[in-house]
Design a protein around this nucleic acid. Structure first.
Length: 296
DNA sequence: CTCCAGGGAGCCT
DNA sequence: AGGCTCCATGGA
């Protein structure tokens, strides 16, 4: 076990680990103490969070002056990458719109950062997110890990990684329906198969211009424009991507009505122009703020 | 009981 | 391209 701490004064802007990992942008981290996000209890935002990346267990928690980590490897650069600690939040916020709603959302969760989830886990978890509540999306990923993820011995317990593409490709639709994935079961199986066989992979997406990258991602089964935007934003670092979900569509209707152009592509362009070059950052603040009841 | 949740596929025009 | 309809599951 290796440990370390990333001092907050090395990071450009504020850091809020809890807001980052509990805002519904990633479903690949969980609390090893078993407490759920809704029944926060005594953690006070200082709970440990755990994930597995490339076979290494990584845990983080926030303290007064640092982001602490412990891991099976030297995870310092990895933690900075996964939690978006390399993003200059001063610059990003300065580039955002400053209307009342956006300002309120940024003030409420200053320090929330865009994560960089591993590609396959991000892809699968957002395929699962279709017409599903945030709490249940977490439960579905946990179930996938427990049934199809590689076990890793860590600190006297067995931790399961997110399943490899090959493992989910080898599952049947019926197997995945048994895990309560519902109609998403064949989508997950087929997309896993596409990644496992090399029919379509992240290499076909990253590096491409934003709109072409989004279009390419929709070739995966169960991936439309919205899920594609989630993968671009929460895994591949396209900070301009704005997933047009029910919450942001409602915000557009109420606060940016001129941006509603009917179809996805045109509305996307309009809201990206409205929210600025890091539109995805502001989108994620708005999503978390609105979903937490901040606009009431 | 009905309604809805970080939508997408298939089919129709 | 745009507009249906159906799709599983579980909590309110």
């Amino acid at each position: 076990m290796e440990r370390g701490a990333i001092p907050t004064d090395e990071i450009a802007g504020a850091v809020d680990v809890q807001a980052t990992l509990e805002s519904g942008q990633t479903y690949l981290w969980w609390r090893p103490d078993g407490t759920t996000y809704e029944t926060d209890g005594a953690s006070g935002g200082r709970a440990w969070y755990r994930t597995v990346v490339d076979g290494d267990v990584v845990e983080v928690r926030q303290t007064d002056a640092a982001v602490e980590w412990q891991s099976t490897t030297d995870a310092d650069p990895l933690v900075r990458e996964l939690l978006g600690l390399n993003d200059d939040l001063h610059e990003i916020r300065a580039a955002a719109t400053d209307d009342d709603l956006t300002t309120a959302a940024w003030d409420a969760y200053d320090g929330l950062r865009i994560v960089r989830d591993p590609f396959f886990g991000c892809l699968v978890s957002f395929i699962c997110s279709a017409q599903m509540r945030v709490e249940r999306i977490f439960a579905m990923q946990e179930s996938l890990r427990e049934h199809y993820g590689e076990p890793i011995e860590y600190d006297g317990e067995t931790v399961h990684a997110f399943p490899e593409p090959e493992a989910l490709a080898a599952a049947t639709e019926e197997d995945l329906r048994d895990l309560k994935l519902g109609y998403r079961a064949p989508y997950v199986q087929r997309t896993a198969e596409m990644v496992a066989t090399g029919e379509l992979t992240r290499q076909d997406v990253e590096g491409r211009a934003y709109e072409l990258a989004r279009e390419t991602l929709t070739d995966f089964v169960g991936v439309g424009d919205k899920v594609a935007d989630c993968v671009l934003l929460f895994s591949l670092g396209y900070l301009e991507a704005v997933p047009l979900d029910t919450w942001i569509r409602s915000a557009i209707e109420d606060h940016y009505p001129d941006c509603d152009c009917g179809n996805y592509a045109d509305t996307s362009r309009a809201i990206r122009e409205q929210l600025g070059p890091y539109a995805g950052y502001t989108q994620t603040y708005l999503f978390h703020y609105l979903r937490s009841g901040g606009d009431e």
